[in-house]
Structure formats: structure tokens, C-alpha cells
Design a protein around this nucleic acid. Sequence first.
RNA 1: CGGGCUAUAGCGCAGUCUGGUAGCGCGUCCGUCUGGGGGACGGAAGGUCGCAGGUUCAAAUCCUGCUAGCCCGACCA
Length: 443
Amino acid sequence: MRLSRYFLPILKETPAEAQIVSHRLMLRAGMIKQASAGIYSWLPMGFKVLRKLENIVHEEQQRAGHHPMLMPTLQSADLWRESGRYDDYGEEMLRITDRHGRDMLYGPTNEELITDIFRSYGGSYKQLPLTVYHIQWKFRDEVRPRFGVMRGREFLMKDGYNFDLTKEDALHSYNRHLVTYLRTYERMGLKAIPMRADGGPIGGDYTHEFLVLAETGESEVFYDSAVTDLSFDDRDIDYNDKAQCGAILEEFTSKYARTDETHEEALFNEIPEERRMTARGIEVGQIFYFGTKYSDALGATVTDGEGNKTAVHMGSHGIGVSRLIGAIIEASHDDKGIIWPEQVTPFGAGIVNLRQGDDATDAACEDLYAKLTAAGVDPLYDDREERAGGKFASMDLIGLPWRITVGPRGLKEGKVELTRRKDGETIEMSPDDAVARLAEIYG
RNA sequence: CGGGCUAUAGCGCAGUCUGGUAGCGCGUCCGUCUGGGGGACGGAAGGUCGCAGGUUCAAAUCCUGCUAGCCCGACCA
């Protein structure tokens, strides 16, 4: 992409409403624009990152055999009356009346709808196990939306639902989801720690939240430092292997790690003192096993091998996809701007032309742009009539992991500079070497 | 939902107390010089001062009502 042709409204000054760093940087980097309280438009670069996150979620869900689908944002109140949650959910649920006077709602989650779908076609245990999911906009009418996309009212969430014949099978689904989540967050360059959680309005005894450690996190967390040493490292997983998934759950959840909601001081104090950590975290996902709560309420049954009707065991699992962008920025930035992990960066590298209009420099940049594009690096070429300082500041702000700096001085020696955003490390090399290097990084 | 606050040009702000022809910085557009970390100079465009009503010869400014947004707390993916 040529920056001169892109829609990237970079702000030099911070809009007054933004308090936390991810919100400020997202506004300044031209990723989002507030439409009303807690509701945002996603501008091209923000949308690009959002799509990348969605893709990672899709890939990891489908790798585990979960099926993508799409349910509507608007739902009928009838289903929610049937489950009893129409009244329980309270003011957070946005209620709407259509022209016929029918009560509708903008879905805050989809347990009812998916259970209704399942029961409509259900019947045999032979269909099980089944896990379906979708990535769809949700609405929760927060009393006080804030922090940009971190606590919006409208937000993009991946929510998945598993249907199993027995509790044992459903717990395997639970474990399997934990594994997919570990891998998903790792692929986004995030360290998200599973912590024992509270069921909340969705309910259920088995539930873990995934938290990204960050100073601005909304939850206070308590954990054994041994959990942050754990690393998933792209293991080869057989998602049907109950023992393997169970072992991973055991490995990642047996150490103490809890939010303030479930924290128990006595248990915490059993950890050796030097490993007792208190910090703040951003919740980016949660998994639940809630048994037959919804299948009982809504009559979602299957016929088992002996001809008896039995309620299916269910679980649900969510990832706050739009919130993740905020979480990634909170976890990865400096005073100059965002520092994107390579896995989710909107563009693989930036090309900074220090002397726009100089024939040799322009030609070198064009050549780099073409080669990087061909190599799949997806470069952003800053071809604006700007001075060097402005271009550097813009690149630092939007936070692409790599920058190629092209100027007449270096070109005389046949060199450009390759700079890593994370630490500013700069190496001079030939343009072709820079292309090869980036092609390898993103290959 | 309790408490606090804000609304003036695309963004950040001053002007409001004490009513009298709406300003600054950044950004934008044009030109010249410049050219490796937000450069200089010259010129230009851009505002029913959140909305409605009232007081007044005169309202961004005073009064009333409304709307939107922000912050702290309680609550939440």
C-alpha cells in the first residue's frame, strides 16, 4: 500500500476523550473513530488488524475440528424467556421492539440461539460430539463504556458452543478449547494466562478466563510466577486425544492463577513467597462447561444408544476479538507508539523514502515496494511529500515491526537500512538483502 | 446508578467570571527555500460557539430546559 493513497488519518495530538494508552494510540494511528459511547467505526488499518485476528481464530478453531457458522445479531426475546435469562440479564441487554410490537434484543451472547438450532435438528447421539462457533458483533449496554475498544458496548466476539453426550466428553471439549485458546493467543504474540474464573450470568462450575498481563488491566490477578514460565511453543496436538488435551490443561492450570473474583488468600500463601505475584490483567477470553443448564431449559436432547432421550452436555467459549487489539497494544507499545507483533501487524514493513522526488531514491523505493509485495511482505510505502522526521514519527506511531529507510546517502553505497521497531536496532544492507531478510521473516 | 466535569475550525485549546464584529497552536491547501527524527518564510481556506427557548439595543458569554461525551466509584467479554 502506498501511504499517499491510503486512508490513514494520523493524529499528531491525542483526542481528549482517550485516557489509556491503547485507546490513544488507536485513535492517533487512525485505526478507529468513535461513533457514539462505546461504539466505534473501524478505519482501514484498524479493520485490517481485526481481520488478521479473526483469521487466526478461524484457523485455530478449524484446526481443532470446530465448524464456523454465523448467527444474527438480533434475536427474538421468546427464546430468552424460555431459558429464563430475559429477565435475569438485566439492563445490559439492549431490548428493541419491532414494528409489530415484538420484543427483540441485540444479542449479548448466543447460548439460547445455538441451543434452539441444535434442538431443531437434533435427535441422535451419533451427531455428537459437535462444536460450532461464529465471530459476530455483540452488544452489551454497559453502564459506563470506556477505554476504547477494551470496554465498548458493541464488540466483536468469537463464541463457540460444544454439544456432547456425556459430561466426560464435554470436559474433553473444555480441555480441547483451552488448548486451542493457548495456541490462538500465542500466535497473536500474546501471553495469555488461564485463570480460574467465576461463572457469571452464563453459569457453570468449570470455567477459566484468559488474561493478558498489562498495567492498565481491569482485573487484579494473583499468580504463581511459574505460570508465566510456561510456553505452548507450537506443539503438535491431536485434538481428539483426551489424555493429551487433559495433560495440557493440567500443565497450564495446576499452578495458582486467579483473578480477584476467585482469589483465596490462604491458597495463595502456600506458594513460596518469591513466586507470589500480584498484577493486573486484561480478560481476553473465557471458556465454560455448564452441563445441561441450557439443554434442560430449552429441551435440547438426543437419543442415546439405548433409545433414551438425554439432555446434551454443553459448554461455551468466547474470545473478545475487538478487545484483543487493545490488549495487544497495551502489552506492546512504547512512548512513540504501537509495536505490532509480526503475526498481527497491519503491514509487514514500512518503506520510508527520505527524499521524495529524488529520482534515484524514488526508483529504489519503487523497486523495493514491488519486490516486497511480490515476496508477500505486504509493505506500506510512505511516499508522501514529508520530511524525514515526520515519516519516522508516523512509522513509529503505527508500529510496523520493520522499517526500511531509503535515502540518497545510503544509496550511494548501495545500502538501505533495516530497522526493527521493537528495539530500534538498525542494520545497513543492500536492498535485495533487505527483501530476502523480510521474506524469510514473513515466509 | 451515585459523585465530578466538558461541549468554541479536522485535532488540542483560549475567550465565558466582567455581554459589544470569534482567536491561538497543530493539521489542511498554494508558493518558495529546505531535506536523515514532526524545518523556515509568505499566502489561503475552514466556525449557525452542542440543541431549543428566554433576558437584552446587543449573547460563545447571563437564565431555563434538553442532548451528547468524558472522568471517579459501584457493575461487566
